[in-house]
């Protein structure tokens, strides 16, 4: 039950790991991505992205300054202009 999650900024690959769930702040509302999510391309609003290692544990909160997210068979890729790990 692992989702492959990658967070990329223009300066570097910030994160590349297997997680349980990621909640992404989309322009049309937050959405959670689990393994096997349908392919989506979404624009991100400036906000907070949360990473879950299981259903109840939050492992990271990352502030994003806009960007966009892509879900495909390989997992979730977030392209952000800047990412600050809180």
């Amino acid at each position: 039950m692992a989702l492959h999650f990658e967070l990329v900024t223009p300066e570097k690959l910030v994160r590349s790991e297997d997680v349980y769930m990621v909640v992404v702040p989309g322009t049309e509302g937050d959405f959670g991505v689990l393994q096997g999510h349908a392919p989506v391309m979404a624009v991100i609003r400036p906000g907070e992205l949360t990473v879950y290692s299981n259903a109840t544990t939050v492992t990271a909160r990352i502030a994003l300054d806009g960007g966009f997210a892509e879900v495909n068979e390989q997992g979730l890729t977030v392209l952000a202009e800047s990412a600050t790990i809180a």
Binding site: E28, A38, P39, V40, M41, A42, V43, F68
Partner: peptide
Amino acid sequence: SAAVEYEPDEETILAELLPR
């Protein structure tokens, strides 16, 4: 990728992406 959902729609995403 034909089955990909777009949020909002393709044009808006593209308009967002081009300046980037």
